[in-house]
Write a protein that binds this DNA or RNA. Structure first.
Lengths: 172, 172
DNA sequence: TGCAACCAGTTGCTTTTCACAACTGGTTAA
DNA sequence: TTAACCAGTTGTGAAAAGCAACTGGTTGCA
């Protein structure tokens, strides 16, 4: 066992990187919300993460090779966080957690709709989504068939549809 | 949003139950090591959990409905912890975490072999394993075809084979 | 050129949780 | 009767979480 790990069990090693209450939420916001900047992650976090914790987690995740950080050419002070391949491959973990949470916890309808689509689509859908993430975060061109609707867009549309339906219900 | 949760996102709700460095390790030991008693979980934990933290997590997991606790008829003081259906359905989450950890972290060979088999077997293998867990933890009889070798046993045998091979290497 | 809005964090502080070691009160088998 | 076993509990110091205010710099616009 190496001195810097409690054990060399793969599940334990995963938990040493991601086993806290914020890291996977940040990755969720990057993957499903396409949040790429510190301020986006800070102010649009529905759970209300504190700025010092966000800074600490981003630093850790970059050190662990889950994220990478680059300058945004549009603004000297702006940093862009991107997923690495290691980070992109967390999608199945997040998807399973979303499926479990939807099934066994009191998730709200509008936030559960993505989990439902991820559940129904299964691993093939996740693979498509990961290809989209590789295009967006790693610059690897996505070869998509004619008429392909990105998973990202489908998830977003489904979410907005539920929100719109809820608003309509409220009015009536 | 209900007052007792940071948000009603399914991923967040999952993290509120399992998002720490020990809960999923306890569930791992119950699932893959068939540890059912406090003392087994305490003394056979390769990461060395402290007794107060183990007690706290078991209490929480029972409260959350992931585990159930019952008296062991063989010993008045002995408690048996069992997975609920909610707990059994964490297997895919653990499996994905194991796959990710094996691929992206420096897992040791003997502890990674289970992750490899879970990866190769995929969701069909997980489904079989979950049926075995339902038999063991919920008392639901397992209808297995003639000659069926339980997943639990296959994982265990593969682990022991690697350990034996390592010992042989050491001697030579 | 000045100013407000925006940028990624940092600092100081209090509260909560973690981690370690020692201990408790009861049970069981020899 | 006694030693080993059972599920925890207690006390303590260290680490991490959480909150609010703040920093030093950049940018777009009047």
């Amino acid at each position: 066992m190496s001195a810097d790990h409690r054990s060399d069990c793969p599940i334990n090693l995963t938990l040493e990187v991601l086993g806290d209450r914020w890291s996977l939420l940040i990755i969720r916001d990057i993957i499903f919300g396409n949040k790429r900047h510190f301020r986006e992650l800070l102010t649009q976090s529905i759970e209300g993460i504190a700025s010092n914790i966000l800074a600490d987690r981003l630093k850790r995740l970059v050190e662990e090779g889950v994220l990478s950080k680059a300058d945004d050419p549009s603004h000297k002070q702006k940093a862009v966080y991107s997923l690495t391949e290691k980070g992109i491959q967390l999608l199945p973990v997040l998807a399973q957690m979303a499926v479990w949470g939807r099934k066994h916890m009191p998730a709200s309808e509008e936030l559960a709709i993505r989990a439902q689509l991820l559940d129904e689509g299964g691993p093939p859908l996740w693979a498509d989504f990961m290809k989209e993430l590789r295009e967006r975060h790693l610059g690897i061109p996505l070869k998509a068939p004619r008429g392909y609707v990105p998973v990202f867009q489908r998830l977003q549309a489904a979410y907005e549809e539920v929100v719109a339906r809820q608003k309509a219900m409220q009015r009536s």
